[in-house]
């Protein structure tokens, strides 16, 4: 009998709680929308070339797309290279944003490693 009364009391206490949950479930609204972004296909992957272990005696290319101001930055980089690595030979290049496969192959033959700089 006691257990019956306890069960009844618990049930009566739960009624308002269930009512609140029920009300929340009843009033909640769900808005489903479609994703507006265009899928970006995975780009073709090219593994980076292996690195040289040090710069001593190496030819380092510096390629810049020619926007005004960038030459000042690259002049600084070239000075630092020559100061810290006296045996490094720097080679400066300037040209279009997309140097193309043929020109890239030429540069690869002319230098051991290179910086390619792009910016506005």
């Amino acid at each position: 009998m006691n257990s019956y009364i306890r069960a009844l009391a618990v049930s009566l206490l739960m009624i308002p709680v269930l009512a609140i949950i029920g009300a929340t479930q009843t009033n909640a609204v769900t808005l489903e929308v479609m994703n507006p972004s265009g899928e970006i296909p995975p780009p073709p992957f090219h593994a980076p070339s292996s690195r040289i272990s040090n710069l001593d005696g190496k030819k380092v290319g510096i390629y810049w797309i020619g926007k005004a101001g960038g030459d000042n930055f690259w002049n600084g980089v070239e000075e630092l290279l020559n100061e810290r690595f006296p045996k490094v030979q720097t080679v400066r290049y300037e040209g279009p944003f997309d140097l193309g496969d043929a020109r890239a192959a030429e540069l690869a033959r002319e230098v051991d490693t290179m910086f390619y700089g792009v910016g506005d």
Partner: peptide, 15 residues
């Protein structure tokens, strides 16, 4: 290799 997702989205709220 990553690709961007374009699945639908759901927003649930009281109103």
């Amino acid at each position: 290799i990553r690709s961007t997702g374009t699945e639908n989205l759901k927003f649930t709220a009281d109103t």
